[in-house]
């Protein structure tokens, strides 16, 4: 190889070396933090679960939890997520926990995380909105404008509808599971 061609390779080689060095750094940092990140995510889910069913024990089955109080089955808890208004602009989806009673009514709903507009869509995490879900059956779980019994937040119809849709989807899922005689 001529000297000129070797010199022509230099930029590519320098870039390659820099990429390799920084990839190595990223591997190390990822390894150091991944345990902690997973733990943070588990804690978030556990906190939401215990808010829906305080002082209960959870047994994870496939994609839902059986909830026991003093060894007796009292209901189910499910994690749901879906796109709200924030997700449209590349934000995080709405993540929530739904507690379902044995009679297939909703016990309560807690939002784990969301990226809705602050001051408007962010009201989905307030008790005023979420307390409406308690005791509702599958048929009631629609916005009032769609024939259901949930009032949307003023100015945040898309966020409200997203929450109602996620909750209805999860209740439907557990209702069909229970229908199979489990």
């Amino acid at each position: 190889m001529s000297r000129a061609r070797v010199a022509g390779l230099k930029p590519a080689l320098v870039l390659m070396v820099i990429c390799m060095v920084f990839s190595a750094i990223l591997v190390v940092v990822h390894d150091l933090t991944k345990g902690k990140i997973a733990e943070v995510e588990r804690e978030e889910v556990n906190r939401a679960l215990s808010e829906v069913f305080p002082s209960a024990e959870f047994e994870k089955i496939d994609d839902y939890y059986k909830v026991f109080e003093n060894g007796v089955l009292v209901g189910y808890a499910l994690l749901g997520e879906g796109q709200g208004y924030g997700g449209v602009y590349g934000g995080e989806p709405i993540k929530l926990v739904v507690g379902v009673n044995l009679d297939k009514t909703v016990k309560s709903v807690k939002i784990i995380s969301h990226s809705e507009t602050p001051g408007i869509g962010s009201k989905i995490e307030e008790e005023n909105f979420l307390s409406q879900f308690s005791g509702k059956t599958l048929e009631d779980l629609k916005l009032r404008s769609d024939g259901g019994k949930i009032d949307a937040i003023t100015g945040a119809t898309i966020s409200s509808k997203a929450v109602v849709d996620i909750v209805r989807g999860e209740v439907q899922k557990i209702a069909s599971e229970m229908g199979e005689g489990r």
Partner: peptide, 21 residues
Amino acid sequence: PCFIVVIASLVTVIEFIMRAY
């Protein structure tokens, strides 16, 4: 490209750290 590799790596590092702590 070299500067961007450096910057993007540093951003990823701080993102990991923030998400963990």
